[in-house]
Write a protein that binds this DNA or RNA. Sequence first.
RNA 1: GCCCGGGUGGCGGAAUGGCAGACGCUCAGGACUUAAAAUCCUGUGACCGUUUUCGGUCGUGCGGGUUCGAGUCCCGCCCCGGGCACCA
Length: 805
Amino acid sequence: MLDEYRLAYEIEAPVNWCQALGTVLANEEVIDGKSEVGGFPVERRPMRQWMLRITAYAQRLLDGLDALDWSESLKMMQRNWIGRSEGALVRFAVANCPPEVTVFTTRPDTLFGATYLVLAPEHPLVDLSAEQNIIPAAWPAGIPDRWRSITGSPREAVAAYQKTAAARSERQRQEDNAKTGTFTGAYAVNPVNNERIPIFISDYVLMGYGTGAIMAVPAHDQRDFDFAHAMDLPIRRVVSAAADQPEAGKLPLESPGFSVNSAQLNGLSSAQAKTRICELLEHKSLGTRQINYKIRDWLFSRQRYWGEPFPLIHLPDGTTVPLAESQLPLTLPDVKDFKPTGTMEPPLFKAADWHQVHVLLDGPPENLQARVVPPGTPGAIPARRELNTMPQWAGSCWYYLRYIDPENTTRFCDPEKEKYWMAGGVDLYVGGVEHAVLHLLYARFWHKVLFDRGLVSSEEPFRKLVNQGLILGEAEYTVFALESGQCVSLADIDPEFSTQVGEDGKSRIISRHKSTGALVVGKACDPATVEKRGDGFVLKTDNSIQVDARSFKMSKSRGNVVNPDDVIAEYGADSLRLFEMFMGPLEQVKPWSTAGVEGVYRFLQRVWRNLIGGDDNVFRVVRQHADGKWTCHGRELSAPDVEVALRDAAAILRPMHRLIRKVTADIDRLAFNTAISAMMEFNNALTKLTFVPLDAALNLLRVLEPFAPHIADELYHELAGPDAGVSIALLPWPAFDERLCVDEELDVPVQINGKLVGRIRIAATSDEPEVFSAALADPQVVNRLAQRPIKKKIYIKGRMINLVV
RNA sequence: GCCCGGGUGGCGGAAUGGCAGACGCUCAGGACUUAAAAUCCUGUGACCGUUUUCGGUCGUGCGGGUUCGAGUCCCGCCCCGGGCACCA
């Protein structure tokens, strides 16, 4: 319960029904009138469904974003979805008719410019079957013809328009911005100047937002402006862009300015006028300040088998009570057929022996619980289980909490463990941006509910969030051709491509020839047949033909899907994993490259060969024992070999410390690609050695382990033998010595006036005067200076010398 | 239209205001091989000159600016990707 309202409630309302999926969907799961999963058409249908009152948390979901370490774009998506807007409710009396029309406006300062009202076609005050509607029996005298959509009575005109509007899907409404509507025959009275203004209905006003009614200010709103033009309605300027001229700024002027033609508001800035008019309206009880949100309640039931069943029992008297706690958790029944029924009934409807039950009611009247008992139990009444199930988001709203304490049988999670792991939210959460207004919004909502009930210690679930970039399909080159087969340059076709799915199920890119308008069809071409020319790519055989080069989102119809199982089968899971991290920055969108996987696969093979030898079984890892003896694969090294081993150990010492430092720092900043480069460089250095010191080998494996765990552990066991322990993953992370990360001698570049002229070799310990004298002694530098006097000397320690002449 | 993110070789990308192009892919040449694959070595931003080992000029989407020094900071554009959009 929240403010006397249940957080979960059942309501009969128009919902998003998707026939292809056989279920209803939440608003968040519908994109441009199609299902988010699969892209199937979605229609509005009235159904009785469960809702969660996420709107009650709208403001807190908005406020909570500020402190989160999430990308600005992701926060923006949530802010847009929640859609807070500040404004006022204003009540308009209807002439000769008892009901009032209440409108929501974010621009109450333009009230004097309201020259008509518009109601959504579904608005209750124009519902012809309702007792209290505002439609008069006959048209008022002298109205223009174009105000009426059809000849006939106002009731007929309204009914006709409602019918056309209902036939247009939301998608059609969005695509067609032309303004249509009809006069209702009724007039409203503008409360600030008592002017009689006509009331229209039009589908540019949506029933689902605000009050479903607007005051139209055509001078300061593009949509109202368009409608006023279509209906020949008066346009009255009430805002000027400049304080000192009454007519500044072209109409429609939507940006704030200074009030004009607005009686007591004249001269005020739009912001001041808003405050003043709200005070006035509130004083006269004509309106109130109001904050509106776009977000709607969350439709939480689905007609699917695979989902958590609701622990609810419907009683014969029509009431619904929770299942007895002793009978939780409620699990799905075993069924043979779990497919959608093809009707609007959920699949569980078919499990009659599961949902038809007998129950006993326990507990106080305001908190009844239903306990399922065998039929024939004295006092038992017949009842029915809830047939809908929860959406897939239900589990993802709390799994991160359950992971903390998965074996707990009495609570969802031990409070002590919750405090330890969740202090301030999950430390780092990595996920796709496609969850922006789905999982990431829902989970925040649940978490706040749990917080309010004292069940979790933080108000937000995910403190830091990183969106990994989408992996696109392999780069493709597309050449366009006419139906005759003649190739057309990219420059000669309309840059707006569209995609068409052919009879074979494959999609093709099509466009039109710029001058002739003829159809051109895109066709993939081999990368070997194109070359770079200027900003783009052209055919090698005909340089006048430009081709399109880009990567596309993987999709079945395009046929560019890469299945990770196939990659694993060919290169192994380590290679796949490693390559995904090597491709580039985590958050960036990047194209797939099978040749690239080959590259990291070769790297792993080189590591293997460096450490335990290849087919030739030449073992190279050497270890020094406590008694000073050196062995390689159990054999003692000869004296000359010991010399070599000592030299190799000295050569690899500093690179090894640098490797550990680099990987440690890069993991911290999630720069996995550069961490892997560092390992590759180190491994290349190992290749040049005759003998690989054991600690260099083990440290490489230890830092490689998080990236390629299987091969790292395998090699570790090979090298460490019986002392290996369970896994390299359990060994502590290696330490590095900052002093051993710097070479004893450095090459420092020398610039004259910012231009590179040479480089000098200095000891790492050299101070500034020593460096300058070394630089000025360098023949190359002396030559380039050509006797010119030095005005300024700049030395950036260990990195750069710049001499200004 | 509004709001984010991004433009660096043939490609993916690297670079606390300090040697642009690390690392990998691709391609070319060489070694090994009867041969091929695999592997190893060398080269691989563009242009120009000596045509050798070398030297020069230009170069991080475009145009300006700050600075001894700019891929990096500032101002103005262009292009690409993503999100939102009849929400009053």
